[in-house]
Design a protein around this nucleic acid. Structure first.
Lengths: 231, 231
DNA sequence: TAGATTGTTAATCGATTAACAATC
DNA sequence: TAGATTGTTAATCGATTAACAATC
């Protein structure tokens, strides 16, 4: 597989391709053209072909793409076959929801264990994943090759825990706290799930639409009034 | 406030500005230049100024931006002062986590109620929010002005519930299911929280970095070998 | 006033789209 | 073979960056 520098936009589209390809597989569809795939995702055929061509030649002239083969290629591009190791920090509501509902292995990850400070949780298991004492985190991280720390601690603890993780030399953080961890000096990879950013973007779009509707309504009313005066 | 067509990228940066401005406020900082703000967010001063200039003139030559005033402008841009109404569909782990931990009102939203099908939940409250029977959803939506449905049902139910919501004429969905709801025919606003997309993007970046490291290591080894043969 | 910093126009850069030869 | 559709090159479009006059 090619690995040239690929733009962020392309990379962010890859998981969507994966999801769509899985959906097609489930629907029993075995081949698809860039035209149809683009149509289903709201993208142009050109973009589909450009995106995949960043990584190799996965299609066939006159045929299109084989769904199963393309799915495997996308999975490989995303690193789903690498078996990365993750640990979860913080077994609050979000942490528990992740352990109980989010299937790490479906995406190629192994969740080794979780950490928390609550004594009643320490030593127990959830969905087969052991919960350890937060105090043992450093030791565990030095004894085990861990690729990602899933950060699900309360807001107030976010920075302190991040410092500890950085000190351990962790390479990546999947950040569920509403704290901006991005640090220009650090080269740790941070991927954020910012619920509030997402909701506020939606809030913007709803506002925009309401304003547009209000303008349309005002125009319509003005028109109706003008009509009435004309008569 | 201006409301010209603003690009998606600009809008997605607004919530980050809001967060940073809140952080500055908490730290007691009352003014900031585009240079400093950009530095703290990893953006150029030009971009900061361009972004805000989409909505008006919020700064002052020779001074910069007043943190509190800018924060209020950004909040208004995002529609945080509009008091949008939301309902939650599905009180599983994610739904419960949202009710217990996510402060809708902090972002200007009112969570009116939640819906579920489990009899033991119906009629109870969580964080002061009543849980109703899913069967009453249509009636509730026609009796109340609801701007957003927060979709947190199991994967299998996602499409069916979306159809019901669309039939009710709901304007926006905040989608926590791992299902691609985007429908080219519908003009419903959909904002996705796709955990797996986020993790897979991170997976890509980790893979990329590991590959780069492997290449570097291979080069170093080759060099060392060449050196040994030279001696 | 002098220094700082904005808002905006112009220049650059990068991403998307279109076009088409290659070929299954 | 003819039709379909790729991969890639060139053209277009849009977003970011740089520059600078305006002005606090």
């Amino acid at each position: 597989m090619k690995r040239v520098k690929v733009s962020n936009n392309v990379i962010r589209r890859m998981p969507r391709y994966l999801r769509k390809l899985d959906e097609l597989t489930e629907a029993g569809i075995t081949r698809i053209s860039s035209f149809d795939l683009g149509h289903q995702l709201g993208l142009t055929p050109s973009q589909i072909r450009q995106d995949f061509s960043c990584f190799g030649e996965f299609g066939q002239q006159g045929y299109g793409y084989n769904v199963a083969a393309l799915r495997e290629q996308v999975a490989a591009i995303l690193g789903m076959d690498r078996g990365f190791h993750a640990v979860l920090i913080g077994v609050g509501n979000i942490g528990r929801a992740l352990m109980e509902n989010f299937c790490f292995s479906e995406w190629g990850f192994h969740l080794l264990c979780a950490f928390d400070i609550k004594p009643e949780l320490i030593g127990t298991e959830l969905s087969g994943v052991p919960i350890r004492d937060m105090a043992e985190m450093e030791r565990f991280l030095s004894d085990n090759a861990v690729d990602v720390a899933v950060l699900a601690v309360p807001k107030e603890a976010a920075r302190r825990v991040t410092e500890r993780l950085t000190a351990c030399g962790i390479g990546a953080i999947w950040n569920f706290t509403n704290v901006e961890l991005t640090d220009p000096n650090s080269n740790i990879l941070v991927e954020n799930i910012h619920f509030s950013d997402s909701l506020l973007s939606l809030s913007y779009f709803i506002s925009e639409r309401k304003d547009e509707e209000a303008i349309r309504a005002a125009k319509a009313e003005k028109l109706a009034e003008a009509d009435k005066q004309d008569q």
